[in-house]
Each structure stands twice: as structure tokens, then as C-alpha cells.
């Protein structure tokens, strides 16, 4: 029985790993109360790359990101800018030096991001499509 459970667990882990490594849709979410219904790809770039810290309607926006080691980050920036993560990191290290713009706040996991979006009306973040809940509003969807 124990052997059966452990083998089941192993299968689960393997299946989870397989699921994680597969390409998956990434969506942009905001607080449910945010009046914004959708954003454009371009507006997303400008917000995430530090050009504008506001929604298209002029309200301030707080961009949320994952920590450097998070696997979703690389996929997101690739989808957003067409560049790999090392180029994005180089960009930020150059921009931070002059102090004009600063990178988004970094969080360790999707759960932490979801909590932050739910509690912050001006937050904007990206999630795997599968992680979206009813308390979030999807404003953009990257199609793989």
C-alpha cells in the first residue's frame, strides 16, 4: 500500500512537472474593482518596462513581478518583448543606474501575487491562465 501511494505520488509529481514544463497561456490580471476592462500589448510593455506607471485611464498602476528565479518570469518577458531574460536583466541594471525608472515589485509565487492583486486596487500582474480565480479580472491574454 505504501509502495502504491509512493508510486502514485511519484506519478503525480512527474505529471505536475510535465504540466509545468509545457507552454501555457499567460494572462494579465487586475483587481476586480479596477475600471479597466482591457489593456493593449503596447501599454503592457510601457508599464512593465518602467516607461509609464499608470493605467491608460491615468490612474496609478503598481506592476507586480516574480523573483528572478521564478520560471514564469522568463516566459512572460519573452512573450511581452521578444527578448530573453538576461537581456531584460541587463536593461534593468542599466536603467536602475540612472534612477529614472524602477523595476516592478518582485514576489516569490503566484499565490503571493494573487493575494497582492486582490488586496491592492491599483495592482496589475501576470499569472498562468490556469491560476486565475473569480476575484481577479483578466485584461489581456498572451496566446502561445
Amino acid at each position: 500500500m505504501r509502495a502504491y501511494i509512493s508510486s502514485l505520488c511519484f506519478l503525480l509529481i512527474v505529471s505536475m512537472k510535465l504540466e509545468a514544463s509545457e507552454p501555457q497561456d499567460i494572462v494579465i490580471v487586475v483587481n476586480k474593482n479596477n475600471p479597466i476592462e482591457q489593456v493593449t500589448h503596447r501599454q503592457l510593455i510601457d508599464m512593465y518596462m518602467g516607461k509609464y506607471l499608470a493605467f491608460p485611464n491615468g490612474h496609478m498602476a503598481i506592476t507586480l513581478d516574480y523573483r528572478k528565479e521564478h520560471p514564469l518570469r522568463s516566459a512572460f518577458f519573452k512573450a511581452l518583448t521578444g527578448r530573453n531574460i538576461s537581456q531584460i536583466n541587463a536593461y534593468w541594471s542599466r536603467v536602475k543606474f540612472s534612477g529614472k525608472a524602477s523595476p516592478p515589485q518582485a514576489y516569490p509565487s503566484t499565490e503571493a501575487i494573487i493575494d497582492k492583486v486582490i488586496t491592492t486596487p491599483s495592482a496589475i500582474a501576470y499569472l498562468p491562465a490556469s491560476a486565475v480565480t473569480d476575484e481577479l479580472k483578466v485584461v489581456y491574454r498572451f496566446v502561445q
Binding site: G50, K51, R94, V95, S98, K100, A101
Partner: peptide, 14 residues
């Protein structure tokens, strides 16, 4: 490439 960034962010220092 640096100049592009400066132009993109309108960063006068850069």
C-alpha cells in the same frame, strides 16, 4: 542600444 533605452524612457541622464 543604450541610446534606444534613453530615448524610450526619455531618460535625460542616460
Amino acid at each position: 542600444s543604450t541610446a534606444s533605452i534613453a530615448a524610450y524612457l526619455e531618460d535625460k541622464d542616460l
